[in-house]
């Protein structure tokens, strides 16, 4: 006992010495996170080793945090895995895709606090962050519901003047490149990606440049959901640098551009000519993303399906 007491006293005096020297040891060192992109279900840094610095308003002394700065080769790698995932994802039953999306909502619900905090660190106040997170989770549920229903809305039995059944059905396109809107960083990214994957496509999404960190936190939730690796690939970086490569890539079937400058959009459209990509642009204001009715219209799914028309002899 006595010895322990001695030790304690010695420890206390040592701390007192340090204080006199102007050094106060912290209670514990916090563990900082290395934010990584999600490619093929794996967390990766940029192949280039480049980083973008993002402010961390919650830290003392205005420390900045590093998020990966994706390169052309990161885009290429992501396209390869997205293409690899497409067959499996589009081959699942629509009902199963809906179940997997609902499971994603379950995972996000459990991480509600973490996602809200990420949005706050990206510049939102607490109440707006909470509202956006809740809206984002609800959006996932909406599209989970659409997964096995939109087909009936878009399909048709066409009247033809001949002895044929003629019907039209929607099919997925393949790999789709998305530039997510700058704001809302979370709801906008999910709102853009969900209709595309609901239709059976796989996605490479370039996250908001204003708040890239939230997208990477979302990536952690995506990786723990039942979504197969490669269905959603999240890259952070500069759209102006990466979009032209995505637009030129022969493996990419379509682009969905949000909040892209007209010059960059034009450049993308010109590059997209090589394999006749579908290039969709959608510029809606920030408030419109929160309109649950408008933003969950099946028309957003329709933009990323190809219509297949089949003629079948009716034997008349």
């Amino acid at each position: 006992m006595a010895r322990a007491k001695d030790k304690e006293t010695a420890g206390a005096s040592a701390r007192a010495d340090e204080r006199e020297n102007g050094f106060v040891p912290p209670a514990r060192l916090s563990v900082r996170k290395a934010y990584k992109m999600l490619v093929g279900g794996q967390f990766v840094r940029s192949e280039s080793g480049r980083y973008i610095q993002v402010a961390d308003p919650m830290s003392l002394g205005g420390t900045k945090e590093n998020v990966p700065w994706a390169s052309r080769k990161d885009v290429r790698d992501a396209v390869v895995v997205a293409r690899g995932a497409w067959e499996g994802w589009s081959g699942r039953t629509a009902y199963n895709r809906g179940q997997i999306l609902y499971r994603l909502a379950e995972m996000l619900e459990a991480r509600q606090g973490e996602l809200s905090r990420a949005l706050e660190r990206g510049g939102l106040d607490a109440s707006r962050a909470a509202t956006e997170t809740a809206a984002a989770i609800d959006r996932v549920v909406s599209y989970a519901g659409w997964a096995d229903k939109y087909q009936s809305l878009f399909s048709s039995l066409n009247p033809v003047a001949g002895p044929h059944f003629n019907f039209t059905v929607p099919e997925s396109m393949g790999v789709v490149g998305v530039v997510a809107p700058a704001r809302p960083a979370l709801l906008g990214l999910l709102g853009a990606v969900l209709p595309i994957i609901t239709a059976g496509n796989t996605v490479i999404v370039l996250a908001s440049e204003e708040d890239p960190r939230t997208a990477l936190v979302l990536g952690e939730a995506l990786a723990t959901s039942d979504l197969p690796g490669g269905v959603i690939n999240v890259l952070t970086g500069r759209a102006a640098e990466l979009l032209p490569h995505l637009a030129k890539h022969m493996e990419v079937a379509a682009l969905d551009l949000h909040g892209v400058t007209p010059e960059l959009a034009r450049k993308a459209e010109e590059a997209a000519i090589v394999n006749v990509k579908r290039v969709r642009t959608r510029s809606i204001d920030e408030a419109a993303w929160f309109d649950a009715d408008g933003a969950t219209s099946p028309r957003w799914i329709e933009r990323f399906v190809e219509m297949k028309t089949i003629w079948h002899p009716s034997g008349a």
Binding site: R76, V79, R83, H245, K248, H249, M250, E251, A271, V274, N275
Partner: peptide, 10 residues
């Protein structure tokens, strides 16, 4: 030759 990444589809 072209500067664009290719697809096995072609």
């Amino acid at each position: 030759r072209t500067g664009a990444y290719q697809s096995g589809d072609y």
